[in-house]
């Protein structure tokens, strides 16, 4: 059974069909990319997978369970963690505090344990602090922990978002255009991080505009145009697929 299975998913906004009968599977351990022109419906698809809103029809199965229409925090609790196309950091918190907040899903404790700080709670806090340092090193933000998140350059903000999402120990990580607005070096750094995340065993589903990034990291690609899936396959197949060339690459490749 696939890690993520999307079946005949459709989303209508009034008269607009933003997603039209889309289906695909993401296998465990895969690094899967969804590409398509602006407004094709990629973020809409992500929103339905992550429970941000429910599909009009169709179903989403994740890790063996039907998660269609479940509230987002429950989907996240199950291990499906996403980032957003527009950076959503906790700006008033430090870089380290941002990552620490990411451990919510994999830690426990409420008001009582916060007040009385039993042994397990202190051990947990120590574990969080240690792992936070490791994650910041992992994405190349070591030594920046005490900075306000807002003060980071944009490229590093995106890396911080990835680190924070990793803190939640996702089974499946959804990244919505993580390279948007990054320069070439920043994109390369991000691609490297995404590959290493995947090598750690995290399944990754990536929406991306940057073809260089997608062709470099993705093992399998689905192409969406005007809300419909027009192709799916390995990067080499996608590069030469006639419909894709016409719909998406056509404009740039033909020039």
């Amino acid at each position: 059974m696939a890690m993520l299975s999307i079946r005949n998913v459709t989303k209508r906004f009034g008269g607009l069909v933003a997603n039209d009968n889309i289906s695909f599977d993401v296998e465990q351990g895969a690094l899967f990319a969804v590409i398509g022109p602006n407004g094709a419906g990629k973020t809409t698809l992500f929103n339905m997978i992550s429970g941000f809103f429910a599909p009009t029809s169709g179903s989403v199965h994740f890790d063996g369970a039907d998660i269609t229409g479940r509230p987002q925090y429950q989907v996240s609790e199950g291990g499906l963690v996403r980032t957003y196309q527009l950076v959503q950091l906790f700006k008033d918190l430090t870089v380290a505090q941002n990552v620490m907040a990411g451990f919510h899903r994999v830690t426990r404790g409420g008001v009582a344990s916060a007040l009385f700080r039993p042994g397990w709670m202190r051990a947990q806090e120590k574990h969080i602090a240690d792992k936070t340092g490791e994650l910041l090193d992992f994405v190349g933000l070591g030594g920046r922990g005490d900075m306000l998140a807002d003060k980071l350059p944009y490229g590093q903000q995106r890396l911080l978002e990835v680190a924070r999402a990793l803190a939640a120990e996702p089974k499946l990580l959804l990244l919505d255009e993580p390279a948007a607005g990054l320069n070439v070096q920043e994109t390369a750094a991000l691609a490297d991080v995404i590959e290493r995340v995947n090598q750690r065993g995290v399944t990754v589903l990536l929406v991306e505009h940057d073809m260089g990034l997608v062709m470099r990291v993705a093992q399998r690609i689905a192409v969406i145009d005007f809300g419909r899936k027009i192709a799916e396959g390995a990067p080499a197949e996608i590069k030469t697929h006639p419909d894709v060339l016409a719909a998406y690459l056509g404009g740039t490749e033909a020039a």
């Binding site: 925090y73 963690v81 980032t83 957003y84 959503q88 906790f90 918190l93 907040a101 919510h104 899903r105």
Partner: peptide, 18 residues
């Protein structure tokens, strides 16, 4: 931290399982 993540960004808090 859960409270402060809500103040920071509700969508991000949701996505982290809060």
């Amino acid at each position: 931290r859960a409270l402060r993540s809500i103040a920071g960004s509700e969508p991000a808090a949701q996505a982290l399982g809060v």
